[in-house]
């Protein structure tokens, strides 16, 4: 299994797309840092004792959390695309090219092959997602002015990063399942459409929470059950901004965080969902001809 994991890792790293992804990520982080820098400079800080009151402080906090939320939201998006695009071809691509023949005729089981692919992809993408998460947070806290700095505890950061890392776990497991049965193109289309539907479902749920419309909230919940990607992101923002316990913090959250707080059961569900998809991927691959 580890031999397959190592090969999977080497394959991604040796391909040009990985280098392009790394370069584009650096470009994205540089742009984000530039944006943060100029926002800090353009918006004048509140002078102590100027009597401008709590409203301006609240507004600044809102702007600051929105900027961080936007950075994390886009990070989530590019990490998801990378997870989808690398997983949907992991098996189908090798079957189509017959490269898989010489691997599978070795004394390894199909279960080991799928788990090896999963482990290789997961190690790389979880590392990427965590690096991206802390990169965004560090840029936000480091390049921003004092008024932009948000007060994060270590527990908040570790909890949010851990939940954020769940996203590639779910996406890779689902992508691998599709990859055992579909062509790369079909699996990619299905995954990306589901990803888009999950995020639309997430926004509908947020609007439902604001408007107090149960039907809208239920649509979001159903989408979270079908493809629990957006809810993982929302849960991460709740943990990061600690909006679970503070009504004021919820008001600060805005579009890129969560107005309603996804329950802790969601984490368990996402883990079970990923494990279940992986099990189906193994089962499906063991049954098929290559």
């Amino acid at each position: 299994m580890w031999a397959i994991s190592k090969l999977t890792l080497k394959e991604i790293i040796s391909k040009r797309i990985f280098l392009i992804t790394v370069i584009m990520t650096v470009v994205f982080l540089a742009l984000y840092a530039t944006a943060i820098y100029f926002v800090s400079r353009e918006a004048p800080p509140v002078e102590p004792g100027a009597g401008q009151g709590a409203e301006i402080v609240l507004l600044q906090q809102f702007v600051s959390s929105q900027l961080l939320g936007a950075g994390l939201y886009f990070s989530s998006f590019i990490a998801a695309l990378l997870a989808i695009l690398s997983s949907v071809s992991a098996i189908s691509g090798e079957v189509a090219s017959h490269q898989i023949d010489t691997w599978l005729m070795r004394p390894i089981s199909r279960t080991q092959f799928v788990l090896g692919k999963f482990a290789g992809l997961a190690v790389l993408l979880v590392a990427y997602v965590i690096a991206l998460f802390f990169g965004i947070v560090l840029i936000h806290q480091g390049f921003g002015a004092d008024w932009m700095a948000l007060d994060f505890g270590a527990q908040q950061l570790i909890g949010a990063a851990s939940v954020f890392a769940l996203q590639p776990f779910v996406l890779i497991a689902f992508g691998l399942l599709l990859s055992t049965r579909m062509t790369t193109l079909n699996a990619g289309i299905v995954s990306i459409m589901l990803y888009g539907a999950a995020f639309i479902g997430g926004f509908i749920e947020q609007f439902g929470a604001v408007l107090e419309k149960t039907a809208l909230i239920n649509i979001g919940i159903v989408m979270s059950l079908i493809y629990p990607v957006d809810s993982i992101y929302r849960k991460m923002t709740v943990l990061l901004f600690n909006t679970d316990s503070s009504p004021l913090a919820i008001a600060q959250g805005g579009l890129f965080t969560s107005i309603s707080s996804p329950s802790n059961a969601l984490i368990v569900y996402a883990l079970l969902y990923g494990a279940g998809m992986l099990w189906f991927a193994v089962y499906s691959f063991r049954k098929r001809d290559v």
Binding site: K10, S97, Q99, T102
Partner: peptide
């Protein structure tokens, strides 16, 4: 194999 394809990377 007849269709000998190996990872070209």
């Amino acid at each position: 194999p007849e269709l000998f394809r190996y990872p070209d990377w």
